[in-house]
Amino acid sequence: MFSISQNADGVVALTGRFDASQVDTAREVLDGITSSCTLDFSGLAYIASAGLGVLFAAQKRLVDSGQGLTLANLNPHIREIFHIAGFEHIFEIR
């Protein structure tokens, strides 16, 4: 089960498993972000390249307009995948 939603503070929370079947769900929310914000991964258990691609597209669009995404609370497995993919060069991660 995957979910993504933006709370009143503007933080976008992702939970569950972000696999290739969830790309459209994530894109719907991320396409609506127009300024810098934080994505909270504390509830996210899993992501693979399809999910990384969606995040990359959102970040590219925002960076091109002087904004950007910050990723927070990645679990160790997801952090390892971000490291292998070189996404530490693309996102601010904390």
Partner: peptide, 24 residues
């Protein structure tokens, strides 16, 4: 293989999934 050392402007789409498989 994907060039993973560059910044956002140097990245090109495609190939990341196979790259992750080969690394894991």
């Amino acid at each position: 293989d994907v060039a993973v050392d560059g910044g956002i402007d140097s990245r090109r789409p495609g190939g990341l999934g196979v790259y992750l498989v080969k690394k894991l």
